[in-house]
Simulated scan of single mutants.
Amino acid sequence: MDTGAAPIAAIDIGGTKIAAALVGSAGTLLTRTQRPTPAASDGETVLGAVLDALDELATAPGWAEVRALGVGSAGPVDIGRGTVSPVNIPGWRGFPIVERLSAHPAARGLPVVLAGDGIAIAAAEHRFGAARPYDNALCMVVSTGVGGGLVLNGGLHTGRTGNAGHIGHITVDLDGDPCPCGSRGCVEQLASGTAIARYALRSGWRPAGQDTSAVAVAAAARAGDPRARAAYERAGRALAAAIAATATLVEIEAVVIGGGVAQADGLLFDPLRAHLKTYAALPFAAGLTVHRARLGTDAGLVGAAAVALAAGA
């Protein structure tokens, strides 16, 4: 995004929040808005929250110069069909998000470019962030769900439908819990914020108040609660196993991890790095560099804009 270039509108759709922004040069956010995701509601209600965020964005200064709308969504996605089927939003199955956004008055004929949230964070971190020095990297978002995207040979590797690198649904526990995706023992069932909180509660952890989120588990872990620490240890180990498998398949040099759960810092990254030394044992997979995402929780927005730009916007 060159200095002085027209901004890109971006929407980041996750299981917890829907964020929208105008993204300018160097990946800077010019204006931003956010809504909670009504994930348990029907598909039209979820779309209503997206359109509400878009309508607010369209009132911002600079909207008239916007040249494209980039959309990053929890997956799976199908970039050819323009549809999304987020595991954590059951009301959207094959939902035609590109068609519906394109038809909305605020979009006013803008090209709408869809990407999975993992691909979006990979685009953002490779263009502007921690993956910039690497030609081969895995970029991940660990939040309500777990997603990922690959940079191979210096460029984004999206796959046929846009789901390449969707690491959250690699099985790492053969006898693990069933996953809404239809498999069992997926990384997302062990390492997402939802899974961390669920495991801690199942192990006997009880919050001081009403907050049973992964953030509350992290606070308890820092205070020394062994059950809370075990939940993060388990998450780090699951991530390490999946990252090692990816490194073995495609010889990545680095992994970049963002999303809300990554804010736990050492609680997550220390066990991840320790277990990675065991699981990534072959010489060509060993020695991976692990980074925290540089763009923080806004990486999805910056990445959605970067994908739109890469598509020729």
Rank of each mutant, 00 (worst) to 15 (best):
G155L: 13
G155S: 14
G155I: 14
G155E: 15
G155H: 14
G155C: 12
L156M: 12
L156K: 04
L156Y: 00
L156D: 11
L156Q: 04
L156S: 05
L156N: 02
L156P: 02
L156C: 08
H157C: 12
H157N: 12
H157A: 15
H157V: 00
H157L: 14
H157F: 15
H157T: 12
H157D: 12
T158D: 03
T158R: 15
T158G: 14
T158Q: 14
T158E: 15
T158I: 13
T158P: 13
T158F: 12
G159P: 11
G159R: 13
R160W: 13
R160V: 14
R160K: 12
R160S: 14
T161R: 14
G162T: 06
G162F: 10
G162D: 10
G162N: 10
G162M: 10
G162V: 04
G162P: 08
N163G: 00
N163L: 08
N163A: 02
N163T: 03
A164V: 12
A164F: 11
A164H: 07
G165F: 07
G165V: 02
G165I: 08
G165A: 09
H166D: 04
H166A: 14
H166K: 08
H166I: 11
H166R: 06
I167E: 00
I167F: 07
I167Y: 09
G168Q: 03
G168N: 03
G168P: 00
G168V: 03
G168M: 09
H169A: 09
H169G: 06
H169E: 02
H169P: 06
H169L: 09
H169K: 04
H169W: 05
I170K: 03
I170F: 01
I170D: 01
I170W: 01
I170Y: 02
T171I: 12
T171F: 00
T171N: 11
T171M: 11
T171D: 11
V172Y: 01
V172R: 05
D173F: 01
D173Q: 10
D173H: 06
D173W: 00
D173Y: 05
L174W: 07
L174N: 05
L174V: 09
L174R: 07
L174C: 08
L174D: 07
D175P: 06
D175S: 05
D175M: 09
D175E: 13
G176W: 07
G176C: 01
G176P: 11
G176S: 05
G176R: 01
D177S: 12
D177Y: 00
D177C: 00
D177T: 08
D177P: 10
D177I: 03
D177F: 05
P178T: 00
P178I: 04
P178V: 00
C179H: 01
C179K: 01
C179M: 11
P180Y: 03
P180G: 08
P180V: 00
C181D: 02
C181V: 06
C181P: 09
C181R: 05
C181S: 08
C181T: 00
G182P: 04
G182M: 08
G182V: 04
S183F: 07
S183Y: 10
R184G: 13
R184D: 10
G185D: 02
G185W: 05
